[in-house]
């Protein structure tokens, strides 16, 4: 029997990597660790997305150094492949956030839907007007409602900037001091956060201001040791 009604489809869940590939990411193998960690997380991300039967995961990636550009357009999880990126140039986070704000507009986004997941990975200090970019991002309704996660790669990252990106008192940036921690955080965000974001729970409207209706579980414990390199 044909199902009554029109075309049935799952809701799109946009998952966007925002990756710092400024010159300082060359230090101590950070960019190689990042490329490796994302590549290694992809099969886990794909498996998790197969379990999330209520959402259609679309993954994209944006890099910033001197300027910013999209490197991977929205791609179905099963077809997603990571392209290794090289590190050179400045840290134009502001430009990346402006680019991001343009795709979080309605359209191309729909008015009803799952909040996108934005994952910012950075090791340093923005060199452009990041505050202007962030303001533009947060002015977009889906920018404001997005699940924003930030991962600091090493102690030199500006935690204040990464906190402002999250703009949520309940959550802090994740600090990766070594490649293993970076891998763990990237795996966590690729799977646990993806899964939680695909299943928003109903919540009364007047609690909207108190937070998202996406229950993000606790991140993995920070791994710190004498072998910390960043």
């Amino acid at each position: 029997m044909t199902l009554p009604g029109g075309e049935i489809s799952k809701r799109e869940l946009h998952f966007i990597w925002i990756v710092d590939c400024s010159g300082s990411m060359r230090d101590d193998g950070k960019i190689q660790s990042l490329n490796y960690a994302i590549r290694e997380a992809i099969p886990h991300m794909q498996r998790e997305s197969e379990n999330n039967i209520q959402a259609d995961l679309l993954i994209s990636a944006l890099k910033f150094s001197t300027g910013a550009q999209w490197i991977i357009p929205p791609t179905q999880a099963k077809n997603f492949k990571w392209t290794d990126i090289e590190a050179k140039g400045h840290t134009d986070l502001g430009q990346a956030l402006v680019l991001l704000s343009e795709v979080l507009h309605v359209p191309p986004m729909t008015e009803r839907g799952l909040p996108p997941v934005l994952v910012l990975l950075s090791d340093g200090q923005p060199t452009d007007d990041y505050e202007g970019g962030l303001e533009k991002l947060l002015r977009e309704p889906w920018g404001k409602k997005a699940i924003r996660i930030s991962i600091a790669i090493g102690e030199d990252a500006n935690m204040n900037v990464l906190e402002k990106f999250i703009a949520d008192n309940e959550r802090s940036p994740l600090l990766a001091r070594n490649p293993e921690a970076l891998s763990n955080y990237i795996r966590w965000v690729s799977t646990v956060v993806q899964s939680a974001s695909a299943r928003p729970k109903s919540q009364q409207k007047d609690y909207e201001s108190l937070g998202s209706n996406v229950d993000i579980p606790q991140p993995p414990e920070s791994i710190s040791s004498a072998a910390d390199v960043w």
Binding site: R11, H105, V106, M109, E111, R112, G113, L114, P115, R139, E140, P141, W142, K145, P200, K201, S202, Q203, Q204, K205, D206, E208, S212, N213
Partner: peptide
């Protein structure tokens, strides 16, 4: 001024004042 969007599942409720 601002586009109105509706993240899924924010709703009026019997338990609201």
């Amino acid at each position: 001024h601002e586009q109105n969007i509706l993240p899924l599942n924010f709703t009026n409720s019997l338990c609201m004042d």
